[in-house]
Write a protein that binds this DNA or RNA. Structure first.
Lengths: 218, 218
DNA sequence: GAAAATAATGAGTGATTACTCACTTTACTA
DNA sequence: TAGTAAAGTGAGTAATCACTCATTATTTTC
């Protein structure tokens, strides 16, 4: 019974979900749910099959999660807050303290940082993206995170480097949009659209960073 | 009974779906289905409620579409092929015939063209994006369209302007990725993430085009 | 090691699901 | 206008849905 669970380390990562208080069976439920949600989507996944896959009685799911939706939220919300929020806090500090002398340094740090996160939590990130449009709580939470955590801080960075003359004088919101979508586009292509292709990550990141820098140069 | 249907013109656009052979009730079914699929997603939408909204007996749906999935595909596939494929054919011709002297001209034409299309078919485009991961037929169709129609032709354009010295010497696939994601990022922000904001479309498109041009400059 | 608390079970619940089919209504043709 | 085909109907079907609950198994506490 001490069988080690393979391939679920990412789920029980200290950084995201303190899973110390999760039962053995609870972990199996979460694992099975993540698998199913990704394969068929939330609505098309039945609690009975989740239970079957987890090797658990259906009632056990509802002992721990009042509703099927609660199960989804329990899986998805901790990843969401860590997806957007925390990295930029310390990176922002570094910018303002001139630890990052150039926008280039900041950009590279952000891309690398987010890549390791997405790599670690890819299945849940995919579920999150899929379900955001259909769950009011997720939508509002996400918008708030993006608006306050990400956007506001990113704006300070942009203005900082605009003053230094490294970034062209366009509305910061546009500069943010252009920067983020270029990065996001890389992740989208790399991990969602064509993950099966052999990617030279270092090179593609470098191209993307240089593309953004040139695009926003004075 | 000759009541005009408001707000469904986009559905019955000659360019996409020849709806001349659609029954009055069939149109109502399609309209109701599109609404529901967008609100709740495909799996969470029941045929009984679609029928109710369309003011039609449930059996009528299955008279015209063998399965619920057939209904989805009937709605989504014609839009998919027109989303990716045809525009670039004539634009490619213009490039090779030097009607578009610069990459800038080509880019601007593509963005404008796709914006009018997306504007017209936004609800179905959203449904398409949502459901692609869960339906094998959609996935393979989409990949084929992107690979053969879009990618191959775009590659010729990139190489053309690389030879002319307008685009930096990087792998065409990367130049395509960077160009497309910048455009896609604009549409994503403009029509999906924050459609409620007041956008100065002309200005944002101009910024996006210039961003791409600078980013890919020698 | 008894008592209390928590975890796990699985048969059972009414509601809802996609889909069928025998039948009626409408439209078209000769 | 009779005859035929197509469109539309809605009650009915078995399967499945999310969820409950009385009962049993396991842990924790003192």
């Amino acid at each position: 019974m001490k069988k080690t669970e393979e391939g679920t380390d990412w789920l029980f990562d200290e950084e995201v979900s303190e899973s110390g208080d999760l039962t053995e069976k609870q972990k199996r439920i979460v694992k099975a749910a993540v698998e199913m949600f990704q394969e068929k989507g939330f609505s098309a996944s039945s609690t009975s099959e989740i239970a079957r896959r987890a090797g658990v009685a259906e009632g056990t799911i509802f002992r721990h999660y009042n509703t099927k939706k609660d199960l989804l939220l329990a899986i998805v919300t901790p990843v969401m807050s860590h997806l957007v929020a925390p990295f930029i806090v310390k990176d922002l500090d570094k910018v303002l303290k001139s630890d990052y002398e150039h926008y280039e340094d900041f950009l590279r740090a952000v891309v690398k940082n987010r890549q390791t996160f997405i790599r670690k939590h890819l299945p849940i990130v995919k579920i999150l993206i899929q379900e955001i449009p259909f769950h009011h709580e997720l939508r509002t939470q996400f918008i708030e995170h993006v608006a306050t955590d990400l956007f506001d801080r990113f704006e300070k960075v942009i203005i900082h480097f605009q003053k230094k003359g490294e970034i062209i004088q366009i509305p910061p919101s546009s500069a943010i949009r252009l920067s983020i979508t270029a990065i996001l586009g890389f992740f989208l292509a790399r991990y969602i659209m064509v993950p099966e292709r052999e990617w030279d990550d270092e090179k593609e990141i470098e191209l993307t960073v240089q593309f953004i820098l040139n695009g926003l140069k004075q």
